[in-house]
């Protein structure tokens, strides 16, 4: 009886967590493309106007970013201005929760068929590298190691802290601006 009551609450909590994480990640993707040259180099190979989506199937939370050119991303929230070019789709809310709560690495989730790629796979691979780079910056090393296949050996504490602070500041500013708008 108790389980039956708790289950919808747990499901709702997962939904809210995934939605919040997508909002943070979307803004952080925009921020990291403004502060990190490695991410900018990766993003420059994407076509200008390229739209990338991460979403939960069938019609759950999503994040959409656009490559504006020069390696810069712009976060569009959960609404795309036109059909997206590449979408990484989690097959179920639970799978998205496993990845976004760092219980399962993104690479492992791909290997476990938790998500699928719709669009050009090479762009999806590139975006996954960008996401890994972002996670390595903004997460404490002990958690980042659970999120990425391999924590970058050349990412040292001073660079990590400086970049993370700049990314978080930009994310917070973007949240405030969105709330005001």
């Amino acid at each position: 009886m108790l389980t039956k009551r708790i289950q919808p609450m747990a499901s709702q909590a997962k939904r809210l967590y995934v939605e919040l994480m997508f909002q943070v990640m979307g803004r952080a993707l925009q921020a990291v493309s403004e502060v990190d040259s490695v991410v900018q180099t990766e993003a420059k190979a994407l076509p200008e106007g390229f739209l990338f989506e991460m979403m939960v199937m069938p019609d759950g939370s999503k994040l959409i970013v656009e490559h504006m050119g020069e390696g810069r991303f712009h976060y569009h929230g959960d609404t795309a201005p036109r059909p997206v070019d590449v979408s990484i789709k989690f097959k179920h809310l639970t799978h998205a929760f496993l990845v976004l709560s760092f219980q399962e690495k993104t690479s492992v989730a791909f290997a476990h068929d938790r998500m699928l790629v719709d669009g050009d796979v090479s762009y999806a691979v590139r975006m996954t590298r960008v996401l890994n780079r972002l996670e390595s910056f903004i997460l404490p090393k002990i958690i980042a190691k659970r999120a990425v296949k391999e924590y970058p050996v050349d990412l040292h504490l001073p660079e990590k802290l400086t970049s993370a602070a700049r990314i978080y500041l930009k994310v917070a500013t973007h949240f405030v601006q969105s709330a005001r708008a």
């Binding site: 190979a45 290997a111 790629v117 796979v121 090479s122 691979v125 990425v148 296949k149 391999e150």
Partner: peptide, 13 residues
């Protein structure tokens, strides 16, 4: 090679 889909499944980054 770095943009090839199969690199995702390589056990080492």
């Amino acid at each position: 090679a770095l943009d090839d889909g199969s690199i995702m499944f390589n056990p080492k980054e």
